[in-house]
Design a binder for these strands. Structure first.
Lengths: 340, 340
DNA sequence: TTGAAAGCGCTAACAT
DNA sequence: ATGTTAGCGCTTTCAA
């Protein structure tokens, strides 16, 4: 079923059918009605493929994601789908392994073959890798937005200010009177993990406090539990922990509850991410909420503005979104024993 | 940059370039090398759009998903991306609202416009809606696999045996000596929620036990907490709870811990899903793990077998996957006070 | 082993 | 308001 058949059925030219399909004004109401009726009757769907070919526009965006099973990525993807839906763009999704030196050139090539008009790179920034990716990009590649990645002169980036979020978390622990604040970090190959770590460290240094123990986890709650055990061994005096994500913070709570360490009175705890379940942890989790849906949304907007440049053209931008401290029981506004 | 330019550069016909691109054998080694070199040099990417048009094959699958931010859907999508990647298919993703009487015809139409070769419907089965969807489907629609939905004669379905999983969970609670087992259900508009509820109910009836209180949540841990409060009010004697997902089970734990209800000794608890974090809950969560990645994988395989029919053609199938009980502390193999 | 011609389903540009 | 022509970038005949 093609446009030609519809034209034949209605006794008009293909062009007229095309005009009806594209809602052009220059068609008489009767003709339009007849064509629309025919289209409806046979259930005709104009081919986006043919249209893409002739218009050299696909109205499609590509997404390269890693770790869909993680809250953060899934949440970002949710923002991406919402915004692209609203803007009338289709989405081509590629998931890559979330660890290891994966070569993403094949993924980029595939998206380019499909003539996507922009690419959102929502995989973790493993530093050197990404610099190389950027260098090796084909010259004709469509605009790419790198999420949660270092700004660059050549590409748009949108990131969440992990350093500031970590500072807020750590300052909150300090304000609670913690004297020995440890950090449960994510894998330090990750950009986010490094920034959260340095935010913690900088804040303690500025406050003139000796940093507590540091352990590295792999973002899972299981790793959080074992890392926290190691931190306790390293410094039994520890009275505060800033965990680089909520899952690992859950691991801390698990061990603390098991050992009878009272949270927040003996040990205050702040996580990072803002997963919904944190409100139901025992005790509920103070955390730093990331605007992840917003991140996804902005990424799409950025690409579409490049594809459909407005008056100011298509700038390479570096946006930064601010996370927000969410105070709950694991590190309350004031300690219970400080209360009157 | 097109195939024509490459041909011109190499002094051969477009056909020869096409042959090289498609790895056809009938090209002399020298010609092939020259063409490949030219392609490499200019970074040429053959257009999948043009190829789709002429071949009438897109090598693309469509996914309609809802609730990407939920563990289950994200996990399924992970299986879908893995398998389609392995099979050389691209993925067009559409997310729809996870509640309300959404009309998905526009989504189907969009995917059809892009000439996808199959559609995976990974949104919740809200009963009547889906029956209607099936009835109103355009005749020329590509094969559709419905996930977690009632079997039908016209469409392939893959589902997880929620009823059996719920029975296993409930039987486990019975084996622990629970006499008053409540159920924290999901929204009963969901197929899964209904099956889990009926699995619980049937098991108790067969065992000759009076069913405990039932409350309906919305899958979130916050709703689980308030629903559990209501259940406690309804029946203070309750000594076992089967929750329809792990998040809501977390809500139960939260309330139990706060009120000093000892889990599992005073109240045994089983969840559903198998989220990773369950192992770090306090206490760790006994649950029914769903093979969600496998679900996604099979959906893709099913569609590809239809698109590329083997010797037996393209059957409409109804597959059922079995979930698996994972025993942890919240409902252990034997109660602590039963131990020697 | 290679090439020429035709056409996939649609829209842009120019007719009328 | 409608039709004609050309062509998007590729593959599929068929011919050499």
């Amino acid at each position: 079923m093609t446009i030609v058949e519809i034209a034949r059925m209605c006794g008009v030219s293909v062009q007229t059918v095309s005009r009806v399909i594209n809602q052009r004004p220059d068609v008489s109401p009767e003709t339009r009605a007849a064509v629309e009726a025919a289209i409806e009757r046979v259930g005709f769907q104009p081919s986006a493929v043919a249209r893409s070919l002739v218009q050299r526009r696909s109205y499609t965006l590509g997404v390269i994601a890693a770790g869909l099973r993680y809250f953060g990525v899934a949440q970002t993807l949710n923002g991406i789908t919402a915004e692209s839906e609203a803007s009338g763009y289709a989405l081509l999704l590629k998931e890559i392994a979330s660890s290891g030196q994966v070569d993403i050139m094949p993924e980029i090539a595939l998206l380019m073959a499909h003539r996507v008009e922009g690419i959102i790179f929502a995989a973790p920034d493993l530093g050197a890798d990404l610099a190389e990716v950027r260098a090796r990009l084909p010259r004709a590649s469509p605009p790419i937005v790198f999420l949660k990645s270092d700004p660059s002169a050549a590409f748009s980036t949108i990131l969440i200010d992990n350093h500031a979020g970590a500072r807020e978390a750590t300052r909150h622990l300090l304000s609670l009177g913690c004297r020995r604040i440890g950090h449960l970090a994510g894998p330090l190959t990750w950009h986010e993990a490094r920034d959260r770590h340095s935010g913690w460290l900088d804040t303690l240094r500025e406050a003139g406090q000796t940093p507590g123990p540091v352990q590295v986890g792999d973002w899972t709650s299981a790793s959080g539990a074992s890392a926290f055990e190691a931190m306790l061994l390293a410094d039994p005096e520890m009275d505060g922990v800033f965990a680089a994500n909520d899952q690992m913070a859950l691991g801390v709570l698990s061990v603390a509850n098991r050992r009878g360490i009272a949270v927040p009175n003996e040990l205050a705890l702040v996580g990072f991410d803002g997963i919904e379940e944190g409100a139901q942890f025992t005790p509920s989790l103070t955390t730093v909420r990331q605007p992840l849906r917003e991140l996804g949304r902005l990424a799409v907007r950025e690409l579409i503005e490049t594809a459909e440049p407005g008056p100011d053209g298509a700038p390479v931008r570096a946006l930064t979104l601010a996370p927000e401290l969410v105070i709950r029981e694991s590190a309350p506004a004031a300690r219970a024993d400080d209360a009157p």
